[in-house]
Write a protein that binds this DNA or RNA. Structure first.
Lengths: 342, 342
DNA sequence: CTGAAAGCGCTTACAG
DNA sequence: CTGAAAGCGCTTACAG
């Protein structure tokens, strides 16, 4: 490792290392001249302070911990991209962990991050999370926590979310306006905040168009589509209904892809037999067959906002009095032929 | 933060804190009984050692640094998933950074990671990298470096790569066997190891089938398809050729998606007019139109192998004498109708 | 404006 | 088998 220490600079320059330390971090009563000499020399030899020593001393690590459900999920990988971009800009190291939808993993990862003394936490909960107590403690002990995407009703804190209700309202409305009557909804675990909100938007649109809500048309994939079998079961059940649906509104990337794959495999024509439209952030909705009408979430933006908010909280001197909740608009992208136009 | 320290345990148990420290980390001459008492108590109060203090003392951080081109690229996000899974298993924190294909970013990120005293580095270089000197130094100073995916000819070290040459050979051969004669190849920057290897496999297959290699049929996207314009230019140039190609073999995810999107937009039928097949790890090749024949790289596996190798190097007592190079097989996935069958 | 000293929480060589 | 002490590289209250 780079072996230069404060001491080396000090002895090279004939100063005490307290002076060097102070010169390097400005805002202290140090003569202009000394400061410049020190800085010039430090630059020259590319001095890098030992972060471990600084952390130990300052009780700050300039790092933030992130917990997502799954790194390789396209929505989350975009969020992470956004978080990293802010981390880089503000010089915070980002430590990424995943729960893989297991509450045990989640808790362990969270404890890991906390034992690494991260300065703050960015969290998207798994569906059956039991980490809320730990997060509360952490928050109380002065390490800020910002939730994004999947939040908890059990813990009031800062939040950055997409307008899930509005998004699913718009998408459902779009289907209704194009003449669909029996719109099914395949979504993830009913305990997830995002699932609850998306269901709400769906119901709201139905009500507005006087379409009675039918419990049987709503199906849950408890693992959010991580297992194709659960989506398969959902689709099968829908197809078996007396009056099977004429459209399916899907609530996530994986569920959307699964649903289309399954319908393809069953040779059920989209959109002639059943229309599909859904939440999706995956890379290429325009080239799938048929081009898919989607609600796109501002994932990159969400990561950026959440990271910015967190860093602001970390760096604010005075304790933050009120919790912020940032709601980001979703975008309805209508693509030809995914649903029959009226 | 959890305020329990060694000292607290020591005073609670009436021991010196050196004894507590030793009891906690086994393999030392400590009586069975004391050890158990200490461990039981530590468990009870959920003692977590202060990582910063340990790092400072041990010059080890139990963390590994990762550099990829772009987190949200589906190939890399799968690799990261694999790396994280091993990090979790072996209790190493993973610090992820991205170069965004900028050599300046790359260098700065690398310096960041090194100044955080990571125990090892997992690197996929950007196409015009100038970080190799720094990496050499790092490696010499005892911090192991493992390259994956995109490697450098300038620096002999441990490597984990896909069989790019074999993959592109297989894919090209598949096209040739199905009667295509003028096969174009759109690939990324000619300086990238993966691009060189894929070009090689392409040439090898052509030679085997006595198809003369034609320079004009090879196009480079210097940003690896991050800008759709560069792929558009490549496709345009190919279409303008006297005898325009009957198939395009694409060398990466983004280039594949771009190419299909562009051909769609130009209303050029795939595969009737031009067949497309390419390297791709994106989530749903089966539902794109038409279902795409791809070479799939074992991305998750690559991340796992690279992380395992790195951690083995970190933990090996004796310096490693020989560099390992692990080559992972790629998988040709033939899907209906992406190319006309003979 | 600058220096000497204490201390952050650990680990480990040195005694006993 | 256990303890007292030094030291990892910083920062900062205390003197001057």
């Amino acid at each position: 490792m780079s072996a230069t220490k404060l001491k080396d600079i000090a002895s090279a320059l004939g100063l005490s290392y307290s002076t060097v330390s102070r010169a390097l971090k400005d805002n202290y009563r140090i003569s202009e001249e000394t400061r410049n000499r020190v800085k010039a020399y430090a630059d020259k030899i590319k001095y890098k302070p030992n972060l471990a020593a600084q952390s130990l001393r300052n009780n700050r690590t300039r790092s933030i911990g992130v917990l997502v459900s799954n790194i390789s999920n396209s929505f989350f990988s975009e969020v992470l991209d956004g978080i990293e971009s802010i981390g880089y800009e503000k010089n915070y190291q980002v430590m990424i962990t995943q729960s893989l939808e297991s509450p045990e993993n989640e808790l362990k990862q969270m404890e890991n991050l906390i034992s690494r003394s991260v300065d703050g936490l960015l969290v998207s909960l798994c569906s059956t999370s039991n980490s809320v107590e730990l997060l509360k403690e952490t928050h109380l002990s002065g390490t800020p926590v910002v939730f994004f995407d999947r939040i908890s009703a059990l813990f009031e804190t800062h939040k950055v979310v997409a307008d899930n209700c509005g998004g699913s309202y718009n998408l459902t409305k779009h289907l209704l306006e194009n003449g669909y009557k029996k719109i099914a909804h395949i979504t993830s675990s009913p305990e997830l905040s995002i699932a609850i909100e998306r269901l709400e938007g769906y119901k709201k649109a139905l009500a507005e168009y006087n379409v009675p809500f039918d419990e049987e048309l709503v199906k849950h994939c408890l693992h959010g589509g991580m297992l194709i079998e659960e989506t398969e079961k959902a689709v099968d059940e829908l197809l078996k209904l007396e009056k099977s649906p004429d459209a399916i509104m899907t609530a996530s990337d994986r569920i959307t892809i699964n649903t289309i794959t399954i319908l393809h495999n069953k040779n059920i024509a989209i959109p002639e037999k059943i229309a599909v439209a859904g939440f999706s952030n995956f890379s290429a909705p325009q080239i799938i067959a048929p081009p898919l009408t989607t609600i796109r979430q501002p994932a990159f933006e969400m990561g950026k906002m959440a990271a910015e908010l967190l860093i602001r909280l970390i760096e604010s001197k005075k304790p933050v009095d009120a919790f912020e909740k940032i709601i980001l608009e979703t975008e309805l992208v209508v693509r030809k032929s995914t649903i029959r136009k009226r």
